[in-house]
């Protein structure tokens, strides 16, 4: 799924400036527990979370997650956005709930991280 499609489906706003709307995101994951993302997140995926702190971006960075969407209208602070920009991570915000955000993406074909082998 293209990043621009994700943005449209989630009625989301991009906070990290210019980005490639054609960027392919194949897998989605969602949790407010960063250790779960570290354990099961896949490289190149999008993370949806209602947790809002700088460790979300550090988690995305070390786990090679390319985009983070803060749900339920949570607006990240400037230092979160700056760290994301520095590490080439696209940050989006949506007013939708976690459930509805995941549901819309899943219904439209975005795969879950559990589709893939969980070995190292």
């Amino acid at each position: 799924m293209k990043l621009i499609e994700i943005q449209e489906l989630l009625e989301a706003e991009v906070l990290t400036g210019k980005y490639d709307p054609e960027k392919e995101i194949q897998i989605g994951c969602s949790s407010d527990l960063m250790s779960e993302i570290l354990a099961f997140g896949k490289p190149g995926s999008i993370l949806l979370t209602s947790l809002k702190n700088i460790q979300v971006i550090n988690t995305a960075n070390v786990a090679d997650i390319k985009a983070v969407c803060f749900v339920m209208g949570k607006i990240p602070d400037e230092n979160i956005i700056n760290l994301a920009k520095k590490n080439d991570i696209v940050v989006l915000i949506t007013k939708l709930t976690t459930f509805e955000s995941c549901g819309r993406l899943y219904k439209n074909g975005l795969k879950s991280c559990s589709y893939f082998n969980l070995d190292k």
Partner: peptide, 12 residues
Amino acid sequence: ELGFGAGMGLSN
């Protein structure tokens, strides 16, 4: 509250 402390760190 910061999204950690679920007892997954060492097993991860």
